[in-house]
Amino acid sequence: MIQGISIYHFLIVSSLMFFIGIAGFIIRQNLITILLSIELILNSVAINFLVFNRYLYPDQLQGHFFSLFIIGVAAAEASVAIALIINIYRRIHGINTDDVNEMKH
């Protein structure tokens, strides 16, 4: 609970951040920047969890742990994604999403 700042402030920020992430996911060409957008999305969700935890149920820690686990999952996801990206780069010498459509058939 911060003096003068309500839960709505936080939620507005985090939802804006979420949609910026989505927009980035859709418009970016490079696989790595898509990964960055995903990080943005994950982060906004983590903020949400924490804010709910702090403002609504401050005597418990569920939201806190969820954020912790989100960070863990993000780390795992980033490592696998980067491994995939590097592998794709080796094969087609580029990581633009428009080039990676061989699975469509």
Binding site: I26, I34, T97, V100, N101
Partner: peptide
């Protein structure tokens, strides 16, 4: 099924 990631997104 274009295979394009962002369309899916």
């Amino acid at each position: 099924q274009s295979g394009n990631l962002q369309q899916y997104a």
